[in-house]
Computed example of a mutant assay.
Amino acid sequence: MPLPNVLIIGAMKAGTTSLYMDVADRRGAFLAQDKEPHALCSDDVLTPAGLAAYAANYANAPEGAICCDASTGYAKRPDSEGIVERAARVLPAGFKAVYMVRHPIDRIISQHHHEYVDGIVGPQIDREVRRHARYIHYSRYAYQLEPWLAQLGPDRVRVIRFEDYVSRRAETVADLLGFLGLAADHGAGGEARVYNKSQGKPVSGPRWDAFRQSSAYRRWLRPLAPPKLRLALQRLILPKATAQLAPPTEETLSFLREELRNDVGLLERTLGRSLQWSGFETAHSTAEK
């Protein structure tokens, strides 16, 4: 029964969809039809039926393929806990995790825009980041990484800085492929397309959602269309998000910097390098200059 031996665990709005698509076309890689199965978020995966449903995503994987699960819900503590413990119980020995991190406040701004477009929150980011603790929690990358590093060890966890991915995409992807044991063929780095940007993202409606959940789509159409093609069709067919939201005030930026500063410093010490994020100059980053 094939199961993932690579997890792209997040962070949300840090480029995971684009990275997922860069890996998708590589020889020897197999990605689930659903980009984010989130199977490890529930104890259901520990039952025979739940584990079989999870494995069904990889039933068509060639023998020896690197199977990948990209679910940003795997780095959303404290809303989702116990992920790594479930992974350790059901996944193949030696499985690896990939975690993308982005300037913490830029990620929060993108998450807010994404959730506003989806109708989850209101348009005022100054209010929403104080009402919903998840914005700060999901940007506490050292906190999110802690259980993964404790369970897997640093040799099986790769942290990718979003800014490096954007500025040196081919080099970053080639390095990741080496970490995963995949050849950097087909021109490592793939196309420069960015997927799942909050601004201009396809906006689904009730009819599209009903179509995607229909038995005809899930049984016949979805298996014939790889993830990259499905995303391309969504961009072509669905309306695009056009909302322009006011940026956070300086007071809110100061609030977020104070909330996140210690975590950034801890992450830099964990990784042994500066993350070079403006507004988060730490003793580690200062020493490197």
Rank of each mutant, 00 (worst) to 15 (best):
P248I: 00
A75N: 09
R127T: 15
H103M: 02
P2C: 02
V45I: 11
M12Y: 08
S139P: 07
V173K: 06
L46P: 10
V173H: 05
Q276W: 10
H113L: 03
Y138L: 06
G82Y: 06
T172P: 02
V45E: 05
T282Y: 08
S204P: 00
N60L: 03
L267E: 07
Q276V: 01
W208M: 01
L245I: 03
W208R: 04
F211L: 09
D43P: 07
P147T: 11
M100P: 01
D34T: 06
S18N: 11
H38F: 04
D155I: 00
Y165K: 01
L256H: 11
V90L: 06
K228Q: 14
A225P: 00
L256N: 12
L229F: 07
R207V: 02
Q234D: 14
D43R: 15
F211P: 04
S42E: 12
A14T: 07
D25E: 15
K13R: 15
A56Q: 13
G279C: 02
D263H: 10
D43T: 14
T286G: 03
A287K: 15
I9S: 00
D175E: 13
V157Y: 14
A174I: 05
L180Y: 04
A97E: 07
A11K: 06
W220D: 06
S254I: 03
I160N: 11
V159P: 00
G153K: 10
R207Y: 02
S215Q: 12
A53F: 05
L149A: 02
A59W: 12
A70M: 13
R261S: 11
E115R: 13
A70L: 03
L229Q: 07
Q111D: 15
R273G: 02
A56K: 12
G82E: 11
N5S: 14
P147E: 13
L176S: 07
A39G: 06
S214W: 05
Q244P: 01
H103P: 00
A216M: 13
S139C: 03
M21A: 04
A14K: 13
I83Y: 03
A183C: 06
D155L: 03
P37D: 09
L31H: 05
R230W: 08
L233W: 14
T282H: 07
R168A: 12
R230N: 08
L221I: 15
I160H: 13
K201L: 01
G265D: 11
I160F: 08
A24S: 12
R102I: 01
K197I: 01
A39T: 05
Q144N: 09
Q213F: 00
L238T: 06
G10C: 04
W277V: 00
S110G: 09
A97P: 05
A29S: 10
R193K: 12
R161Q: 10
